[in-house]
Write a protein that binds this DNA or RNA. Sequence first.
DNA 1: GGTGAAAAAAACTAGCC
DNA 2: GGCTAGTTTTTTTCACC
Lengths: 139, 139
Amino acid sequence: MALLQQDATQACAALGKAVGLSAGAAHERVRKLRERGVIRRTTVEVDAAALGQGVLVFVMVESSAWMGEPGAAFGAISGIQEARIIAGSASVLVKLRTAATMQLQDVLRRLYAIEGVSGTQATVAPETFFERPVSPRAD
Amino acid sequence: MALLQQDATQACAALGKAVGLSAGAAHERVRKLRERGVIRRTTVEVDAAALGQGVLVFVMVESSAWMGEPGAAFGAISGIQEARIIAGSASVLVKLRTAATMQLQDVLRRLYAIEGVSGTQATVAPETFFERPVSPRAD
DNA sequence: GGTGAAAAAAACTAGCC
DNA sequence: GGCTAGTTTTTTTCACC
């Protein structure tokens, strides 16, 4: 059923019909998924370009020390969408969006200002083949 | 106002109150954002781990040729969540989720099977500092 | 766990400022 | 563009299977 959730704001009744259930039953299932935490939250997908965030950049951040704590430091930089520790040669992978490549410079400067950061390697991603949700098996 | 959308399934009335508007006006604003395409769609955020997709991996795919078309080839591999052309040394950045690192091997095998792929460099991401939506300025 | 209907609460609509 | 008040639709609850 999660398949359907990926696509809509549709009524529980419609959901139910799509999977052969009554409105009440469908609602109950969704409620349980929410309760169990399978469904974390309901959101809207926003068009980054429409918000003046058209440029997508990935930055590999190398550090000289263990970067387990300064998560907050990354969060403080506006434009950064994701920051995750990675197991490869770099230490942190950052995904960020800016209005133009010019502003990227500013973000990089702020990244270097973070304690322990010894290097960055930015990669601009002009085109997206596709981007899709987690996709479970039908349930 | 998009700020509020990132967090809820809440009523238009509540949205309105949060930003000092009536229910009707808030509803109208949201409708317009949807119409203009700023809001692409409404979705639910699913917990990847709860669906047996607990391992997050980024793969840099190097190719010997221009990979402008085979987007579909990446889409055919289950587990791949995002695939984007990048401007750096590698050609495509792939973000995927699997149940365990063991299955990663299978995905890599399928990536190599794609026409033009000459190499891959996988990086496991065990921890997420944070992950957040596009975040516009308040409007 | 599912059904079906009643009750409550939203989403929408429209006329007016 | 926003407000208020009405109409419609949906969500939500509940007794019963």
